[in-house]
């Protein structure tokens, strides 16, 4: 199949959604909570779309997203605190570092053909290991929050990537999402994409077709960890501090769930899943902590996620994207567009 044009009807639909997204903050300007929510949705959509490369296409159940997010955040933040380096540059250094660490871990993992459950556990352990390291490493981490410098207005605010509104963060995440979409689309219809899709199904069968499965998986891991590192850089600025709790297994898990529920290997699936699930999660979190204040029931959303995951696995193992696609096709034939 030839690579579909970037501007086919499906992607035009995405563009329309994007256009709506772009003007959204203008209306929500006053409601910071909704803007924060929208930014969080986009943040998770970016992570889940990046995960789609290693998880959806290459079929590796990677649970390490938060490790790369944390590394990105700590690198960017520390460079800002110590060397007054702007996060606009720092986030790329953080992303490179995250990618470097991922490479160091990916080479032996893929080299020894660590797969499936073992890969999931190893990548998940990575998050915990980094949390422990940063908890003990007092020079950059430690148990107390390290606050990032702040300036409310003017160019200094831009230099620090610290704002008193979520609007800029929303646009940064939106831009990242567009970039990740393009990367996804490019990879999907390239040699790497076809190879990843095939090796996700059967590694031996793809090896004898001349595909270096280790190298392909490593490339996928590198792209994914780089994007997660970038997101991490912004994540730290959004929250305004650094803390080892950024290395959060819950976050990794959520990214995977979004990727799977959204539809393995489908570019726009994770965004759809993020829109529904992340806002649902935030709603649940807000209402639960409202109903039972101080009971720590906010974590309950993971249970609801698990239920949704089970339902999806049972009835819609390819995720919700095919459903939406069918609906979209119906709509198209209804409207009479070819």
């Amino acid at each position: 199949m030839k690579r579909p044009k970037l501007l086919n009807s499906k992607n035009i639909a995405i563009l329309v959604v994007l256009a709506i997204a772009i003007v959204l903050p203008l209306f929500l300007r006053t409601n910071q909570y909704v803007l924060f929510l929208a930014t969080t949705v986009l943040l998770y959509a970016v992570l889940a779309s990046a995960w789609n490369i290693i998880g959806g296409m290459a079929g590796q159940l990677d649970l390490g997203a938060a490790a790369y997010v944390g590394l990105g955040a700590f690198t960017t933040g520390t460079l800002l605190i110590r060397f007054n380096l702007t996060p606009w540059v720092g986030m790329f250094i953080g992303a490179l570092l995250a990618m470097g660490i991922a490479t160091l871990i990916g080479i032996p993992l893929f080299g020894f053909k660590v797969k499936e459950v073992w890969y999931a556990l190893s990548s998940s352990a990575l998050v915990e290991v980094f949390r422990a390291i940063f908890m003990m490493w007092n020079k950059v981490g430690g148990p107390t929050e390290r606050y990032l410098p702040f300036s409310a207005e003017g160019p200094r605010s831009w230099y620090l990537m610290r704002f008193n509104t979520y609007v800029p963060y929303f646009y940064i995440m939106l831009a990242l999402l567009v970039v990740v979409f393009i990367i996804n689309h490019r990879i999907r219809y390239s040699k790497l994409g076809y190879s990843l899709l095939a090796l996700g199904e059967d590694e031996d069968a793809v090896e004898v077709l001349g595909v270096d499965s280790r190298l392909c998986k490593l490339k996928a891991l590198m792209i994914y960890s780089f994007v997660a590192g970038l997101v991490g850089g912004v994540y730290g600025c959004i929250y305004g501090y650094l803390h080892p709790s950024f290395f959060s297994t819950d976050m990794s898990l959520e990214v995977v769930i979004l990727g799977i529920v959204g539809g393995m290997g489908v570019t726009y699936g994770p965004l759809l899943a993020a829109i529904f699930l992340v806002s649902f999660r935030e709603y649940l979190r807000a209402s639960l902590s409202g109903m039972f204040p101080g009971k720590g029931l906010e974590g309950l959303y993971l249970m609801v996620y698990a239920l949704i995951l089970i339902v999806v696995a049972l009835f819609q193992p390819r995720g919700i994207a095919p459903l939406i696609k069918r609906g979209f096709l119906k709509l198209k034939s209804f409207v009479g567009v070819k």
């Binding site: 076809y194 190879s195 899709l197 095939a198």
Partner: peptide, 16 residues
Amino acid sequence: FNYMTVEDVVRVGAYN
């Protein structure tokens, strides 16, 4: 490769 179309499967080999 159960989830791939025939032409995509052949393509994986052709990239060799």
